[in-house]
Every structure is written in structure tokens, then in C-alpha cells.
Design a protein around this nucleic acid. Structure first.
Length: 475
RNA sequence: GCCGGGAUGGCCGAGUGGCUUAGGCAAGCGGCUGCAGACCGCUGUACGAGGGUUCAACUCCCUCUCCCGGCUCCA
């Protein structure tokens, strides 16, 4: 099956064919580490992670590069405000970022270049642009001359003449064209600086990304991702810099995710509704947050609120319950009609899952396919107390791989199957005793045991096939 | 001003020129059950408005209304 992706460059769905057979090279604009990452950032990173996981599911070898911007206006400002060095600040928040991403179960990028470690390359890139006549120097600053790059605007659809430059911010009169952007900024007191042919200074934001992308992925690579706000000017400028310098196409497919709103509003400082990943994780488990983030298509807006989080939690639980239920089923050798039905339903769901993901990573539709698997399992369990091994394996494997693409991990220790051995035996004993009381119709004691165990995080469920129990995931 | 995205049942959220009123939540009914939970079966309620194209449009075209975003650091 063919993977179709919506390419911002061209604004339509296209067949995805990587440059090198079987191999995908992608770049995701990472965070500027001046504060904790917020859930909007998280959406972009989770989306990229799902894209990466699905490409891997399809058998591609993926090389993912995601930068850390550790030097720019914001890090400098924040460092000065808080009285620490830029380096201390960025190291602190880089660490926090990595922790948050690990909680959200993101696979580590293959390379996570930091801007400050690549200044010589950036200087070189700027020099090339100056030599080729795409950039000019004014005092200690270097600007990119957008009028020299004829493709300028091809990503965003903005035409430079139409941009209302200066509408909200004053245009530097030294620029030749109001749309020109800075490649190198001259040093000012209190700022970190590097020596360059134009004097002491630091790189502009846009040149950081394009330089590191080219360094680790080559002059032309497959996918470049980020939030839609990056389309202009950041990605537009990256294209201009990279293509002007190399004369070759930069990224081939540009994917941009929509906004996340909080209670209907865009997150903004003025509204005071910034929700960091850390704040969100006080409200729910990390896998719930992650599942919520992929419950809408990445190009649709999604609203962060309690209700949506609650629904996401219930839905995820439903999926995991079914999986655990299947896992807990004793195996047998013979296969019957119910297994045939189960397996064929699951194969159908797998087909739907692939079609959904192949259609521009349609996660909500893929989740719907996962629900079919859950339903098929539950329905099977309704009338069977055991399952033939190979059928069980096929179903479990299919389901596991779905959940793996979503990045919602299953932790086998939580089935209560063996935790520490002792715990299992103890709970089994209590459950057995409770069973005796139930047979004696001592409901009061039986219920008390169930309630007390629940307080300890152990859930008991009585079914026709006997009593099941599991340990609730600790917070 | 210039660019762009939306409007689907009580809520969230896919999708297609007829085979979809996906899927989930919530609601109702029934089953399982000592009770609870989990689960199973069934039921209801849609495609912002107006035109047009068509045998047939929620799906294509046009107009309108309303919402949201980019053009400035922003995921």
C-alpha cells in the first residue's frame, strides 16, 4: 500500500516516496530551551514520533534529527532575568525537556544537535550565502536578501510585496527589503558571542536549523516537520537559506500540525493559559495525555480540557482492558469457529489500520480499527474461557503493534501476573478466601474485601469464569 | 490588505458522489451478575444557509453566514 502525506509545499496529498529506497530521513524542529515545554509543543513532538513509528512499522529505516535551540533571544532574555548563565539555563531546560519526552514515551531522535555546538558550521553557511550574493553585511549583522532567492514564499504562499511588514514590529531601516531576515547578529553586552568574519556575534535562529539539518541529513532529505506556526517565517527562511546555498531542493515533504487550544483558546502568555507538560501530567497519566494528543488528526485543531482528557482515559483503558483480557486467557491446542471469527475480524481491522495510517497518518481512524480489535476480543471472551495458541498470538501481536505505533506502552508487570511473586500469591489467597465467603453468601465481608483492596490499588472483577484481579497502575 | 483552515448527531471525532448515520463518550432498552465493575447485544438523534452540476451530494462548483489561524518570538 502507498503512503499518502499532505505536503504543505504544494498543499495537497502526495505519494510518499523516500529519496533512498527503504530509508527515511526526517527533521523535526525541537524546542527553544528557555522554559518547560508546553502541551502544544508536546503535540508537535508526539505527532512526529507517531510518524516515525508508523514509518518503522512499514519497514522503513528512519533517521530522525531534532535540534535543541539553546541560543537565541529568548534564552538570553530569560537567563538575564533569572540571573543565571545562558548555558546553565539551557542545560536545565534541556534536561527537563528530555524527561518530559521520555514520560510521553517518545523515541529518542537519532541525533539531537545543539545550536551552540554548531556555530562554526553556521558561520560557514553564512559565508557561503555572502559569497554567492544572497546575503549582505550591515555593520556587524548579516542579512539574507529575499529578493535574490526567487523561490521565496513557495512554502507559505506569502508574497513578499503583500506582507504587511512593519505592521506590528518596526522594520530595521538598514535592511534592503523589509522581509530580509538576519543570519548573523552582532554582539551586544551581556550576550554570549562567537568570533566570525563579521565580528563577534551569534547566529540567527533560522540558520541554526537549516545548517544542522543539512549537516546530519544531507542537502536534500525527506521529511521536515513542525507546528504550522513555523511555516512562516521559520521554514520559509530555512528553505531560502539552504536552497540558495546548495542549489538543491531542501526537504521534500513538509508536514505541519494544527494548533492545540486550551478550553477553546489559543495558549498565550496574555491569557495566562499556558499548560506545560508537567502541569498536564498532574491531571492525567502520560499515556493518557499522549493518547489524547493523537485522538484527533494532526492537521485538525484539538482542545485540551478535562472532559476530553477523561474520555481519552476511558478509551485507552478500554483498549488496554481488552488486551489484558486476551493475554490472561489460558491457551489450548484446538481451534474452533470462534477463533476463526476472531482472527478474521482482527485481520480486517489490521487492514483498516493500515489504510488509515497510510492516509496521511489518520490516527483517529486507526484508533477506530483498534477498537474493532478490542471488540472482537471482548466478544470472543464472552463465550470462551480459553483460546487456541496461534490465534491468540496473532491477535495479540497485531494489537500490540497498533499500540506501539500509537506509542502507548503496555507494561506486563501490571497484569498482576507476577509483580514480585509474593504479591501475586497473597492476592490470590485473599481472592480465594473471598470466594469462599461469596459461596457462603457472606456478601458483606466479600464486598469489604473488594473495597479495601481497591483502596490499595487492586481491582477485583467477578466474572462467569471466576474472579480476575489486577493492580492499578501507580501514579 | 494578503495568505490559509474549519462548520458532521447531546459531546468528541473520521469519511465518502449511491455500499458509513466510521469509531468513542453520553442516553435508552435487553443480557451477564448477590451487588458493583468490566463486558456482550440492540436502539435513537447528523452532515452551517442558499443556489447549481448530477439519475443521485453531507461528499463536486458558486455565493453567503459564522468561527479560527498566519503575515511578529511561538509547536
Amino acid at each position: 500500500m502507498v503512503l499518502m502525506v499532505y505536503n504543505t509545499l504544494g498543499r495537497k496529498k502526495e505519494k510518499f516516496v523516500p529519496l533512498r529506497d527503504g530509508e527515511v530521513r526526517m527533521y523535526v524542529c525541537g524546542p527553544t530551551v528557555y522554559d518547560y515545554v508546553h502541551i502544544g509543543n508536546a503535540r508537535a513532538f508526539v505527532v512526529a514520533d507517531v510518524v516515525r513509528r508508523y514509518l518503522e512499522y512499514k519497514g522503513f529505516k528512519v533517521k530522525l534529527v531534532s535540534n535543541v535551540t539553546d541560543i537565541d533571544d529568548k534564552t538570553i532574555r530569560r537567563a538575564n532575568e533569572t540571573g543565571v548563565s545562558v548555558q546553565q539555563l539551557s542545560e536545565f531546560f534541556t534536561e527537563a525537556y528530555l524527561e518530559d519526552m521520555a514520560k510521553l514515551n517518545l523515541k529518542r531522535p537519532d541525533v539531537m544537535p545543539r545550536a551552540t555546538k554548531h556555530v562554526p558550521e553556521m558561520i560557514e553557511a553564512v559565508e557561503t550565502l555572502v559569497e554567492k550574493g544572497y546575503a549582505y553585511q550591515v555593520d556587524g549583522d548579516v542579512y539574507f536578501d529575499v529578493s535574490k532567492f526567487k523561490g521565496y514564499g513557495k512554502l507559505s504562499g506569502n508574497r513578499t510585496e503583500a506582507l504587511q511588514m512593519g505592521a506590528r514590529i518596526e522594520v530595521d531601516p538598514r535592511k534592503r527589503n523589509p522581509a530580509d531576515f538576519v543570519l548573523w547578529k552582532s554582539w551586544k553586552p551581556g550576550e554570549p558571542g562567537w568570533y566570525s568574519p563579521w565580528g563577534k556575534g551569534r547566529p540567527g535562529w533560522h540558520i541554526e536549523c537549516s545548517t544542522m539539518a543539512v549537516k546530519y541529513l544531507g542537502e536534500t532529505f525527506d521529511i521536515h516537520m513542525g507546528g504550522k506556526d513555523l511555516i512562516f517565517p521559520h521554514h520559509e527562511n530555512e528553505i531560502a537559506q539552504a536552497e540558495a546555498a546548495t542549489g538543491k531542493p531542501f526537504a521534500r515533504y513538509w508536514l505541519h500540525n494544527e494548533w492545540l487550544t486550551v478550553e477553546g483558546d489559543k495558549m498565550s502568555k496574555s491569557l495566562g493559559n499556558f499548560v506545560t507538560v508537567r502541569d498536564a501530567l498532574k491531571m492525567c497519566q502520560p499515556e493518557v495525555l499522549r493518547f489524547f494528543l493523537i485522538s484527533a488528526h494532526y492537521r485538525s485543531p484539538i482542545d485540551f480540557n478535562k472532559e476530553n482528557l477523561r474520555v481519552a482515559e476511558g478509551n485507552l483503558r478500554r483498549l488496554l482492558n481488552a488486551f489484558e483480557r486476551l493475554e490472561g486467557l489460558p491457551e489450548r491446542k484446538v481451534r474452533c469457529g470462534d477463533e476463526e471469527k476472531l482472527v478474521s475480524e482482527v485481520r480486517e481491522a489490521k487492514q483498516r489500520f493500515k489504510e488509515a495510517m497510510d492516509d496521511d497518518f489518520n490516527t483517529p481512524a486507526a484508533i477506530s480499527a483498534a477498537f474493532s480489535v478490542a471488540k472482537a476480543i471482548n466478544s470472543y471472551v464472552e463465550s470462551n474461557a480459553e483460546v487456541e495458541s496461534s490465534a491468540k498470538q496473532e491477535v495479540a501481536e497485531t494489537f500490540r503493534r497498533f499500540l506501539d505505533v500509537f506509542g502507548v506502552q503496555l507494561k506486563p508487570a501490571e497484569h498482576g501476573v507476577d509483580q514480585a511473586g509474593l504479591v501475586k500469591e497473597l492476592v490470590d489467597l485473599i481472592v480465594d478466601l473471598r470466594q469462599e465467603m461469596r459461596e457462603r453468601r457472606d456478601w458483606k465481608t466479600a464486598d469489604r474485601i473488594r473495597d479495601e483492596l481497591r483502596k490499595l490499588g487492586i481491582t477485583i472483577e467477578d466474572t462467569a469464569e471466576g474472579t480476575r484481579w489486577k493492580i492499578r497502575r501507580p501514579n
